[in-house]
Design a protein around this nucleic acid. Structure first.
Lengths: 339, 339
DNA sequence: AAGCCGGATGGAAACGTTTCCATTCTTCAC
DNA sequence: GTGAAGAATGGAAACGTTTCCATCCGGCTT
C-alpha cells in the first residue's frame, strides 16, 4: 500500500505553497482563478483527501460525537443510532459508535476510547443513570453528554426519553379497559435498568388507581430469551394473569413465545403488550401491541440537544418525547370466563 | 469545558521530560521505579488520556478499521457489525461505522469520510459488488477491504459469505421434499443486490433439478414492508404457489404478514422460508423457517481476514462460511389437496 | 586507574494540517 | 510619480504524540 498524498505533495505538483492549497481547498481566503484551477487539478490528480487526523490536531476540535449503547442488535437501539447518524451527518458531524453488550468492563473501555478520540460530546444509554461510573467519569472531565432512553431519578443529568411512568400507565389502563383484572409484569432486572424501574412504577400506580392488586412480577436478565420455565409457576390455577406487560419488546416477544410453548393462546388466553415499538412487531403473528417510543427521533433529538447545548449548560435538562400506544393482535379483551 | 491535559502537563507535574512520560506510559524503554511512580501519579492526578489524534498522526497508523453497511436496523447487519466490533476490540482495533440507508450519495460520502479518517482497511457490504463506485475508489487508492455477505460474480474481490447458490438450493430441496411443487420467490431487486441474484439462481437451479417449473418471482424494493398488493395477483386460482422462498428474513416476515392479511394461513395454505437467520425469527408465531448465515462470525471473520491480510494480497480471496437450515413453523408440508 | 558499557533521561524532529503574519505585487488616488 | 491600500501568496508555528539520538552517570573489566 503506497503512501497517501499529503497537502505537501499537492502543493509541489501545483507549484504553490501548502498554505495556498489549504486556502483553496477550504474556500477560505482569496486566490487567483488560475491558482485555484491548478490546485484543484493537482489535488484531483493525486486524489488527495485531507487527513482528518492532521486537521483535528491543529483545530483542537473534532466535530465528532460518541455514541454508547448496550447493544446494536436490539432494534430499538439500532434505530436510535440510525437517528443519531442521520442528524449528525446533516450537521457535518462524525459519529463514533461503541457498544457494551451489558459488560461493565467493555463499557469503561469504550468510554476511555471515546475520550481518547476527543469526541466533543456523547449520546449514551446506560444501565442505570443514577449509579454509573461512566457518567461519573464524564462529569469529572466535564464532557457534555445527553442520555437517551434513560430517565435518571436523582442525578440531574441531561436526557431525552419518554415519560416512562405515564406510558406504562397508558398500557395498563388500556388493559383494564379491555377487562383484564389480573395483570402481570415481565421486567428487565431493576438493578440494571432505570427504565425497567420506572415502567414498573407506572404499572403499579395504574393498578392501584384501578383498585386492582398487582399481579406477579418476573424479573429477567437481558438476553434471556427462554422464559417458559420462569413463567410456568405463575400460570397455574384459575387465578392466573390474563395479561402481561413486558418492559420492552424483546421481552414481549420472548413472553409470547413462552406462553405459546406452554400451550396458551395469545391473545385468547393471555394478552401481552410490549414497550418500545420495534418495527418487526408489526410483522409478526400475532402482531405485537406495544407502547411506541419514537426511537429515531430519540436519537436525533439527543444529538441536537448535545450540539446546540455545547455552549450552554446541559446539566439536568430533560426532553420528553411523545409516545403512542400501538394496538396489536397480542392484546385483546380478557377471556370472558374470567370477567 | 476546560482544556484537556496533555503529555506536557504530565511531564511538568512529574518533573520529567515528555519523552520519559511517553516511555513510562507505554511501557517501552526503561525507567527507574521512582520515575515510573511519579509519572503514573501525575498522569492519574490530571486524569491524562493520550490523544489518539496526536498518536495516530505520529505513528502514521491508526489501528482503526471502517465498516460500511446498508442499514443498522436490519438485524442481520447489526449482528455482523457486533461481530466485527467484538473481534476488533479483542485485537486492539477501533471501529468506525457508517451506514448508507441504500442511498448512493450517502455511500460515497461515508467512504470519503472513512478514507479521510485514515482507516487501515474496511469491511463492507455493498449493493452490488460487481458494479460499485465505492469499491472502485478503494481499489484505486489501494486500501485493503473485505466484503461481507457480498459474493461478487466477476470482479476478483476479497469476500466472506456463504455459498448463496448452494444455500438457496438447500431451501428449495427441503421444500420439494415436503411436497411443494409450485414454489415462488420474493426477492430484493436484482439490480441492487448480488445476493438476491445468487439466491435466485440457486432457487432456479434447484427447481430445474427437481424438474419443476419456476413459480412466480416478485421483485421488491428494500424497506418495502407492505407486500399484499404485490402478492395478491399471484395467489389467485388453483395454481397458486404453495411455498415462497424469500431472499432475506425481513422480506420473509413481510411475506407472512401479507399472506395472512390476504386470508391465507401460514403454513397450512402457504409455506414461507427466509434467508439470514435473524434471532427474532425464533420468537414469532409461526416461528420463521430460515437459512441461517452465521452473522456474527461473518463479521468477525471478515475482520480477521482484513487484519491478517494487511500485509499479504487480499485480491479475490474468498472465505465461505457454513450455513444451516433452521426449521420453523412457517415451513410445513404442502397442502394435501395439491399433492 | 583508564576505558567502556549500558541504563536512565532529555532534546528535538516528525507526522499533516490550519492560520497568523509577513512579503510581494498590482492598482488606484492624489 | 509617489504612496497607500489591498489582493495573492509564502514562511513558519502550532497542535500532541512517538522515537531517534545524544548526554550523563555509575560501575565493571582489565
Amino acid at each position: 500500500m503506497d503512501r497517501v498524498a499529503t497537502i505537501r505533495d499537492v502543493a509541489a505538483r501545483a507549484g504553490v505553497s501548502i498554505a495556498t492549497v489549504s486556502r483553496v481547498l477550504n474556500g477560505s481566503g482569496n486566490a487567483t482563478p488560475e491558482t485555484m484551477e491548478k490546485v484543484r487539478a493537482a489535488a484531483s490528480d493525486l486524489s488527495f483527501r485531507p487527513s482528518t487526523i492532521g486537521r483535528n490536531l491543529k483545530a483542537a476540535r473534532t466535530r465528532t460525537v460518541g455514541v454508547l449503547v448496550p447493544s446494536l442488535t436490539n432494534p430499538v437501539f439500532a434505530e436510535s443510532v440510525a437517528g443519531i447518524q442521520e442528524a449528525a451527518d446533516e450537521a457535518g458531524y462524525s459519529v463514533l459508535i461503541a457498544s457494551t453488550d451489558y459488560d461493565p468492563a467493555r463499557e469503561s473501555r469504550a468510554i476511555e476510547g471515546l475520550l481518547s478520540n476527543r469526541v466533543e460530546g456523547l449520546v449514551l444509554t446506560v444501565a442505570d443513570a443514577d449509579r454509573s461510573g461512566s457518567l461519573d467519569t464524564l462529569d469529572e472531565v466535564r464532557l457534555p453528554y445527553v442520555l437517551a432512553y434513560n430517565q435518571p431519578e436523582r442525578a440531574p443529568r441531561a436526557h431525552v426519553s419518554v415519560d416512562n411512568v405515564a406510558a406504562s400507565r397508558a398500557v395498563v389502563e388500556r388493559m383494564v379497559a379491555l377487562g383484564h383484572r389480573r395483570i402481570g409484569m415481565i421486567a428487565g432486572r431493576f438493578r440494571q435498568s432505570d427504565r425497567s424501574r420506572r415502567r414498573h412504577a407506572g404499572w403499579l400506580a395504574a393498578l392501584d388507581d384501578a383498585g386492582l392488586p398487582p399481579g406477579p412480577v418476573v424479573e429477567v436478565d437481558f438476553n434471556e430469551l427462554r422464559l417458559s420455565h420462569l413463567l410456568a409457576p405463575h400460570l397455574e390455577g384459575a387465578e392466573r394473569p390474563t395479561a402481561f406487560f413486558a418492559s420492552n419488546d424483546m421481552l414481549a416477544l420472548a413472553t409470547i413465545r413462552a406462553l405459546r410453548d406452554l400451550g396458551l393462546s395469545v391473545p385468547d388466553d393471555v394478552s401481552v403488550c410490549g414497550f418500545d415499538g420495534i418495527e418487526v412487531g408489526r410483522l409478526m403473528t400475532p402482531s405485537l401491541a406495544t407502547l411506541v417510543q419514537p426511537a429515531r427521533a430519540m436519537g436525533a433529538t439527543a444529538f441536537e440537544c448535545l450540539r446546540t447545548g455545547f455552549s450552554d449548560d446541559l446539566q439536568g435538562r430533560a426532553v420528553m418525547l411523545p409516545f403512542t400506544l400501538r394496538p396489536g393482535e397480542s392484546l385483546g379483551p380478557a377471556p370472558s370466563k374470567s370477567s
